[in-house]
């Protein structure tokens, strides 16, 4: 499935802003496929139909975005940026909840099946995700643009080309910014 044309999405967002409730339901199937692909980590047009696992994550994105899309959402770019933001917060919430479960406090996430046994190797991932989250916050404090690109790259799975098209920047610029950003993030994580 190809990327839904930017025109359609932008138009539906405009409708949504005009207070047309049907627009959201038209938007969802258009963007859903795309987001799904992003969440599954499969880039560049691979068919996502065989790897449906992360779909619930995309559902969570809509939980955060859904009817609460801010009125200033003007374009597909902003929508994807918001999707990335939402995915990040979902994963971080999940990691936090997991961590607190492990410590014996807190209650189960609504999404979590009670009694599921946590694989030990995943404990490292919990900490890593929280580390990445904090590192991104530090980067955002100094350079919001780079932080946003990183978020789109890692939490929405967007390629440099996609991010460039979404943000209306040249691919060249975005490539440079991302290379710096990657290095910066890894520096934050290793130091």
């Amino acid at each position: 499935m190809g990327d839904p044309g930017p025109g359609a999405i932008t138009e539906h967002l405009a409708e949504l802003r005009r207070g047309c409730p049907e627009a959201l339901s038209r938007l969802v199937p258009l963007v859903y496929e795309h987001l799904h692909r992003l969440a599954s980590g499969q880039m560049r047009g691979e068919r996502p139909a065989h790897t449906l696992q992360p779909t619930a994550l995309v559902n969570e994105v809509f939980l955060r975005l859904g009817p609460n899309l801010p009125p200033d959402v003007r374009s597909r770019a902003q929508f994807y940026a918001l999707a990335a933001r939402a995915m990040r917060s979902i994963l971080v919430d999940h990691a936090r909840a997991r961590a607190s479960e492990k410590r014996g406090g807190g209650r189960a996430l609504p999404l979590t099946k009670p009694g599921t046994i946590q694989e030990p190797s995943r404990d490292l991932d919990l900490e890593s995700v929280l580390d990445i989250h904090r590192a991104l916050d530090r980067i955002a404090a100094r350079d919001p643009h780079v932080a946003r690109l990183l978020e789109m790259r890692f939490f929405a799975g967007m390629t440099a080309e996609e991010a460039a098209s979404a943000l209306d920047l040249s691919v060249h610029t975005v490539r440079h910014d991302l290379r710096l950003g990657h290095a910066w993030l890894k520096k934050e994580l290793t130091l």
Partner: peptide
């Protein structure tokens, strides 16, 4: 980049796999 992508993707899979 695996140190970033790996944990995120596994976490996503973990979350999604459970909620299915």
């Amino acid at each position: 980049d695996g140190m970033i992508e790996g944990p995120i993707r596994r976490m996503a899979g973990d979350l999604a796999g459970l909620s299915a």
